[in-house]
Simulated scan of single mutants.
Amino acid sequence: MATLTQIRDAIKAKLEAIPGIGVVHKYERLATRVADLKALYVTGGQLRGWHIRRTATNEVSPTLGSYVIDHRWQIRGFMAIDDSAESEIAFDNLIEAIRDAFRADETLGGLIKGTQVPPPTIGVQLIEHGPVMFADVLCHGARLNLATRHFRVGV
């Protein structure tokens, strides 16, 4: 039986395994000072980081004492823009590497049933991509969605 924490940790580990991903936080890191927020997402001198947030949970009980639990996750990423280095292309490639990684292991190492949740989508979906200001830095920003499904027997 997977727990919420185990699923969140598995998503984080899957992201961290992607070369060049940057900093990955298992929750949305916030700070009251811009400099502190920026420091949370900088690696190798560049703002490049991601965070994970659970946005919804749906649970049904098809039979007495058994449960199907669907979680919706949002993965947000930011990378400082460097137009001369074609950073938009590098960021797009990171997004595709994330999608590939989850497609290659839909059960997160056997922890969950899979990432196919109605409507019939599977894996990581790119919802939004474009320039954003984050921590006073002009960045590429992306919002990705992931749905996970697991089963639980008993309370």
Rank of each mutant, 00 (worst) to 15 (best):
G22L: 00
H150Q: 12
Q125D: 09
V155E: 14
A31K: 03
V137K: 06
M133D: 15
F91G: 10
G130Y: 12
N58P: 00
R48S: 13
R33K: 12
I52D: 05
A147T: 03
L144W: 10
E128P: 08
D9H: 09
E88Q: 08
G20E: 02
F151K: 03
T57R: 11
E86C: 00
V68E: 15
Y67E: 12
K38C: 08
D70F: 05
R53K: 13
I98T: 10
G141Q: 03
V68Q: 14
I18G: 03
A80D: 08
P118W: 10
I95W: 00
I122T: 07
A85R: 05
A10D: 14
C139W: 03
I7F: 05
R99M: 09
G123R: 09
L47Q: 02
E86V: 05
M1Q: 09
D100C: 03
F151V: 05
V42Q: 14
F151G: 04
S66C: 06
L40C: 12
G154H: 01
T148E: 07
K12M: 09
C139D: 00
L4D: 15
K26G: 05
T148I: 00
Q116I: 07
G109L: 00
L144V: 11
F102Q: 10
A56E: 08
L30S: 13
G20K: 07
Y41A: 08
R54K: 12
R149V: 08
V117I: 13
T148M: 06
H25C: 06
Q125M: 07
R143H: 01
T43Y: 00
T107K: 11
G114F: 04
I21N: 10
P19F: 02
V68R: 12
G110M: 04
G77W: 04
A142K: 02
A142F: 09
G65V: 02
F102T: 00
P19W: 07
F78M: 05
K26C: 01
A90E: 13
G45P: 07
P119K: 10
G22M: 02
I122V: 06
V60D: 12
A80I: 04
I98M: 06
P62K: 04
A2I: 00
K14C: 09
E28V: 13
A97C: 02
I69K: 11
R103I: 00
L108N: 13
R53I: 13
M79D: 11
V153Q: 08
F91W: 06
R33G: 02
L138N: 10
A17W: 01
R152Q: 15
G49W: 05
H129D: 13
D136M: 06
T148G: 11
R8T: 12
P19L: 05
S61M: 11
R152K: 04
N93L: 02
F134E: 01
D105A: 00
A10F: 08
E88V: 02
R33L: 08
K38L: 10
G44E: 05
V23R: 10
